[in-house]
Amino acid sequence: MASVKPRVKVPKSASAGEVITIKTLISHPMESGQRKDGDGNPIPRQIINTFTCEFNGQTVFSCDIEPAVSANPYLEFTAKVGEAGTFKFTWVDDDGSVYTEEKEIALN
């Protein structure tokens, strides 16, 4: 799907040991599998089922997502920054597609 676009908001810099807030949103219909089309046939489920956030290769936060999460899944969580580095965000789709995004953070 070309329409899937991840968006992430991470502060540009933080002081060592600071807990920062990260906001992510990915445009995705999150088809629940409960809806029916005009002819009464069920529309197959297609959702983002997993999200992971890593910092310099170590997992910071992850979640298992079910169809009850709204379309364009929005996630807000925190991370403790001890060093400068790169946040890597990964979304996994039911169809096997993987969407990723990276953000740098510096220490001030």
């Binding site: 999460v69 899944p73 929005y74």
Partner: peptide
């Protein structure tokens, strides 16, 4: 089921926000 958040000590705080149906 709605969602399961998995935290680590690197999360800093155990808090998260999302939107649900």
């Amino acid at each position: 089921d709605v969602i399961t958040f998995n935290f680590t000590p690197m999360s800093g705080e155990a808090s998260a926000t999302t939107r649900m149906r």
